[in-house]
Each structure stands twice: as structure tokens, then as C-alpha cells.
Nucleic acid binder design. Structure first.
Lengths: 330, 330
DNA sequence: TTAAGGTCCGCAATCGTTTGCGGAAACATT
DNA sequence: AATGTTTCCGCAAACGATTGCGGACCTTAA
């Protein structure tokens, strides 16, 4: 461990540690001459402050945590990339853990975050988190938590959300315009807040319009399930004219089924999805989708976090707007 | 900051800090009775050791670093997910930074890693890293670095690699078996070690076989470039019968071009790729590919890292084997 | 000449742990 | 009774930085 410390610099310069420390941060108490000397030596010796010592002393960590169910996922990935960009700009380190949707792992992770005294946490809770004591402990230690994607029901928590209702409504409007009546709608895990939000919004929209639309809802927790479900749906005699997918994962499954049955999009089956934007453009024609950008959400989450840390945030919830991106799949 | 410390526990129990510390780690010097008392109080008070203090004292950080050009990338993503799984199992925290392929950012990141005294670093260097001083400083501080994917030319560095030559050869063999002669091969950035490795291997294979194969090489640094390139290639009068893509990114671009020209795979154009496995299965028929699993590479990298940390590793390079996954695209 | 004020720097406590060492008390051995 | 062994625990020094406070020295003004 060939590390240069304040002590070493002080000794070779024949001055005190405090002088070195102050010189390095341009404290006015230090004369220009000594400051220059210190800075020069520090530079040639490649001095780098020991983050642990600093954090221990100053009680603030310059590390922020991020917890997602899975990293291997377009949406989370773009969220993470976005948050990382911002944290780097602010000189913060990012500590990332995944829960695998397991509440037990989730609470272990929270422990690790607490032990590492992260100065803030971005969290997407698992689909079946019931015990919030781990999160409460964070709050008790004044560690702000900004929830995203799947958030706790408690409205008194900081959060950034996609405009779920708006997104579903945008998709619904687009579907309504096609004039097609028979719609199959694929939703994800029932435990997720976004599932409920989107489903309710979609159903409400068509109920209020009463346009003779026949909407059938299905649930699938992953791509494979979605594929099987859609295959069954499309093989039935009374097959739908439109398929709505509430996420990229489901879209992938649906498209596999459609391709296997060699159905032409949009002639034989229309497709629309809520998506992060990457998957829809892989197909030809491009799938029409309502964008829910993890990247944008990440930026939003970060500004929210900064506001929370500085204690200036009265707002609890920030919403990332949705926008319809037209492809050729309707 | 409502944190319980050893001191607090010691005071309320009327014993010394050292006793509490030892009791908590089941030191034999401490009697069962006091140990129980300490453990109980620590539990009810939700004691959690201050990681900074521990690390400062013990000089070992329980944090490992990981640096990639981009997080938003199937391959890196799966690598990260894999490494995270392992680190969590070992109670380690993972600190992730991206370089955006910018050497300046890269060296800043290295600084952050050093300041945070990571106990090890997984690094994929940028396509144009020339100055390795930042990495050398890590070595001087005895921080092991395990390179992956794009690695420095210096053979005296720890690294895990995909079997690039083997992967290219496997793909070449599969192409040879089709009997098709005109092949267009798409490669990535010339600055990447994997580009060179794969290209050389592919060219050597066909040169040695001299099977009358007409191989043309193209370069594209991203999906859009690949798309344009392939469009031009396929519009030419003398269009190839097979397209080889050395990565998922290029495959995406190639497939977009193919779909736009409404060419049938594999009848009108054969496709094969080296891939992480996610993209090829999105199409129908599934694309035949040689698997280069980021997930497996991650596992391998982690075991290599553990060996390096314990100082037990004589081996410098570990190789992750390749395997051909047959789809219906040849 | 003396008091006031400014400039520049060092002392020492502190953050929360870990750990070598020494020592008191209890017990066992001749 | 004297000596040797355990058993159990506390003292205090680190780890590397930050920072309030005080003090030495010099300048300036009355």
C-alpha cells in the first residue's frame, strides 16, 4: 500500500498535518508560499485523499445507492446509465445492487447500503415487498430514498414515476383511431404498481368511450409466458385484431408468437406497446409505442434526489411525461 | 443521524468498547454471558458497523469497481449482472462507472476508484486508451485489475477473454458448411482487440481452406453504420449470400437493413453472428450465432479476481469457451 | 511605547473501529 | 502457601482526514 498521506507530506515538508490539509483546499489561513509548496509536493507524490477517512470524519459519503430487481433489462439499464452519468458529473460514486425480486435479498441489500452509509438511494421495490422496515431504517438515518418504477403504495414517499395513466391513455387513443374493436391487452405481474395503474387507465378509457370495443386482459410475468399466452390467443377462432403490451418484455414474447404464426403486422394483427424504445425499432415495420424512457426518468430521479438531499424538496412525486412514437404496426 | 455505535452500546452496558467489539465477532476472550448481553442489545438497537471506520482501520474496503464503456449494452449488462450476483454473495459492494469510450473520463474514473480504495477492479478499456498510467497506479497500490472484453495489448496483465479466434472459427465452419461462397463480414471498431482477433481468425480460416470463398470485410462502429453498410451491400448487383456480424450491435443494424429490403432469411440471405444470445432469438427464424456469454464471462472474471486478491493466481489469462447455437438463419 | 489587529500556523480532539498487550481475578498445581 | 494457568476484560494506539481554538509573530495606529 504505497499511499501518500497528509502525514507523509507534512513530514517531508516539515510542517503540520493541518497546514497541509488546509493548503490543499485553499484555506485563506495558509500563505501562498506554503500552499504552493504543498500543492507541488502533493502533485508529484500523487496524493489522493483517503475517501474512508474523509467520510468517517465528515459523516457524508459521496456514494449513492441504486437497487433494481434485475440489471439485465433494457429499462433499468437505461435508468442506471442515466443516473451514472449524472453522479459522475457530481463526483459521486454509484453502488448498484439487484434484488432478483426477492424481498429477503432486498433487505440484505438495504443493510449493505446502510453500512456503507450511502447518502441517498434509488430504489425499485420488488413485486412482493411487504415489510418496509428496512426502508424505514434508511429514513430514520436521514438517508433519502427516491423510488422509481415499482413504488410503495404509501403516498408519503419520494418518487419519480412514469405517467402510467397517461401512457395507457395515449395507447388507447391510438388503438381507438384504428377502428379495430377486438383488443387483447397484456399486462405484467399483478404485484407491480405500474401494472395496476396502466390496466385501470386502459379499462377506464374504453369504458368511458363505450365505443363497442371488446377488451380482454391477460397477465404474464415474463417474456416466455407472454409468448405462450399470445400464441393461444391468436390460435383461437375469435382472435383479436389488436394486441397491447404494457412493457418491452411482453412485447418480445408477443412478437415471437406473431412471427411463429407468420402473421403480418399490421394487416393481420396490430401491435402497440409501452416501451423504453429499443425493442420496437428492431422489427419491421417498427412497432408503434408509447415511450417510457428510463433514461429520462433517471435524469428526473437524480434531480429529485439532489433536491431531497439538500432538503429543499417539498414535492413528493415527480412525473415523467409520456409521448406516442408512431411506427407502422397499427 | 440516529446511529448506534460501539461506544453507545459499551456505555449503556457499562463495559469497554473493545469488549463490545470482540463480543460481536465471537472472540473467545469474551465470556458467554457478556457476549449474549452485547448481542442482544446490539440487536435491539439495530447496530450496524460503520463501514468507513472498519475500512479505514482494516485497510480493506469490501468494494470492488467495474468500468465499462457503456452500461446500455446487452453484453456489458449481462456481465455486470453476473458480477453483481457474485459480489453480493461475498458481501461485497459493487461500484460501477462508465467511460463513454473517452480516455479522459476513464482516467477520472480510475481516480475515483483509487480514492474509494476499491479492493479490485474489472475494466474494459476504451477503444483508444493509450495512456496506462492510471492503471499502473492501481497496480502500484496493489489493487488487482482484471481486464475483460477490450483488453490492453500488454500480455502481462490479468484478463478474462472470450475465445475470439475460436468463436470466429466456429462461425466460419458453419458458414463453410452451407456451401455458399460470397460472404460479407461486418466488424466493429478497429481499435478494439476483439475486432482484430476475430477478423484475423476469420480471414485465416478461409485462407487455409482455400475453398473458393469470397470474403469481404466491412467495418462499422455502431448499429446505424452497420445498417447503412448492409443496405448498400445488399443493393449491389453482386450481393453476398451470407452476412457475418461480429457483434449484437452490428447484427441489429444488419437485420434492419434486411427487413427493410424484405429479404427472406435464410433463402435470400444467410445470417450468422457472434452474440450474447439475446438479440438472435428475437427474430424468426432465430439467428444462428456463436455464443459469447457476458454472464459466463462475468462468473469467470469474478473467480479470477478472487484468485488475484488472494494472490494465488499464477495464471494471467482465463478464456471463456465459445459454442455454436444453431438457429435457422443459415 | 503600548495596545490592537492581522497573518499564518500547530495542537489536539474527533469520527467509529480493530487489536496487541497487560493485568486482575479465579482456579489449579505442587 | 507459593507458584503457574486460565479466563475475561480494559487501555490505548492506531487508521487518515477535518477543524475549532489558541498562540507566535509582525504590522499599524494612537
Amino acid at each position: 500500500m504505497n499511499n501518500t498521506t497528509l502525514k507523509k507530506i507534512a513530514e517531508t515538508l516539515g510542517c503540520s498535518i493541518s497546514t497541509v490539509s488546509r493548503a490543499l483546499k485553499h484555506h485563506p489561513d495558509i500563505s501562498v508560499k506554503t500552499r504552493e509548496k504543498v500543492l507541488e509536493l502533493a502533485n508529484t507524490l500523487d496524493y489522493e485523499p483517503n475517501a474512508f477517512a474523509v467520510h468517517l470524519r465528515t459523516q457524508n459519503s459521496k456514494v449513492i445507492g441504486l437497487m433494481v430487481p434485475f440489471i439485465f433489462n433494457q429499462f433499468y439499464e437505461s435508468f442506471i446509465a442515466s443516473v451514472e452519468e449524472e453522479s459522475r458529473k457530481h463526483g459521486l460514486a454509484l453502488m448498484i445492487l439487484q434484488t432478483a425480486n426477492d424481498p429477503a435479498i432486498e433487505s440484505e441489500n438495504l443493510k449493505l447500503f446502510r453500512q456503507n452509509r450511502v447518502m441517498g438511494l434509488f430504489a425499485c421495490i420488488t413485486a412482493n415487498t411487504n415489510d418496509f422496515s428496512g426502508f424505514r431504517k434508511m429514513s430514520e438515518q436521514n438517508i433519502p430514498v427516491v423510488y422509481f418504477d415499482n413504488v410503495p403504495k404509501d403516498p408519503d414517499t419520494c418518487r419519480v414515476c412514469l405517467a402510467d395513466e397517461r401512457a395507457a391513455t395515449l395507447a388507447a387513443e391510438a388503438m381507438l383511431q384504428t377502428g379495430k374493436k377486438k383488443i387483447a391487452a397484456l399486462f405484467g405481474d399483478r404485484g407491480l404498481s405500474i401494472t395496476t395503474n396502466r390496466k385501470v387507465a386502459l379499462e377506464n378509457f374504453f369504458r368511458s368511450k363505450s365505443a363497442g370495443v371488446q377488451l380482454t386482459a391477460y397477465h404474464a410475468t415474463n417474456s416466455e409466458e407472454a409468448e405462450k399466452t399470445v400464441q393461444q390467443i391468436l390460435k383461437a377462432t375469435d382472435k383479436p385484431e389488436l394486441i397491447f403490451c404494457m412493457s418491452d418484455e411482453l412485447l418480445i414474447g408477443a412478437m415471437k408468437a406473431i412471427q411463429q404464426l407468420e402473421l403480418k403486422v399490421p394487416e393481420q394483427i396490430g401491435v402497440i406497446s409501452i416501451s423504453n424504445g429499443f425493442i420496437p425499432q428492431l422489427y419491421s415495420p417498427r412497432i408503434t409505442y408509447v415511450e417510457t424512457s428510463g433514461y429520462k426518468l433517471g435524469k428526473l430521479a437524480f434531480t429529485h434526489m439532489m433536491a431531497c438531499i439538500s432538503g429543499a424538496s417539498a414535492v413528493k412525486e415527480l412525473v415523467q411525461e409520456s409521448v406516442l412514437i408512431k411506427g407502422g404496426s397499427l
